[in-house]
Amino acid sequence: APAIVRAQAPIKWRMQTYAGAALGAEVTKPAVDYINAAANGEMEIELFYADQIVPTGELFQALQRGTIDAVHSDDDSMASPTPLQRFGGYFPLATKHILDVPVLFNQYGLADIWREEYEKVGVTWLSAAGQDPCNFNTTKEITSLEDLDGLKLYTFPTAGRFLSQFGVVPVSIPYEDAEVAVQTGELDGMAWSGITEDYTVGWADVTDYFLTNNISGAWIGSHFVNPQRWADLPEHLKQLVMAGIEAGHTYRDQWYWGGEARLRAQGDKLKLRTIPQKEWKTVEDAALTFWDEIAEEGEVHAKVVKIFRDYNEVIGNAGPPYTFE
């Protein structure tokens, strides 16, 4: 927050996103642009990208202390000190499609849990939305589960914890360094995103294969704000910020949904590979065990896992297009 405030100067927020500049232009910037344009000079959000102001690992503390005013990130990447850290980003095989996420938050009660848990640690949670599935893009070909053994992959902490049982070696480095890390040999690829991001951020240029099996159907990420900064905002600007975030969600839903289909069908940089569904069943079963483990970790964990279970039961009974078969 700027210390020098002039009369009628716009309210300024510094916002940092978990995404690098190329991805951030699609996942975070549209909402910011909308808010800045609609605020008509009353408010201005300055957007910064991954690790630009503070390293992503320090992002949460920076948000609490007001060093950064607002954040767009998943709970896992920003090392959230809440139990929700396990569920943000990619909770293994908990969702199938991008729209599952807002439904889970707005119809199945995740929003209340998120709001409550973040309030406890001094951060205001505003809104969550879905993004792309978590596929693999690698320099080495994957056609069976055995091929995962020994692969060094850039992935989310919780996803990495889950994948390590298949021999994956999860590597954690700053987001913007991942592409070069493939070239310096620190990584064999990523289990981080769908194919749209692979092409957008340049990962498709350094890896050769894309595995169509995903370990989660949609990323879960949120907008957060420093409580004091939120309280200082006049009501009409609060409404405006929320509307801008919703507009960003809508844009993103379409960008990913269209991108995933088009680039799988027409992209020429990554060769598609698939592990047969029969074999992949092992991973799906392992995910259910993993859910049980996570549910054991605490009350909130159990509550969230139960919601995922209930929802998956509903879509399982509903059948396609909610499920794949």
Partner: peptide, 12 residues
């Protein structure tokens, strides 16, 4: 002490 911070890696 509250939540003890761990590195967001597999090694944690």
């Amino acid at each position: 002490m509250g939540f003890i911070e761990r590195s967001p890696t597999a090694w944690r």
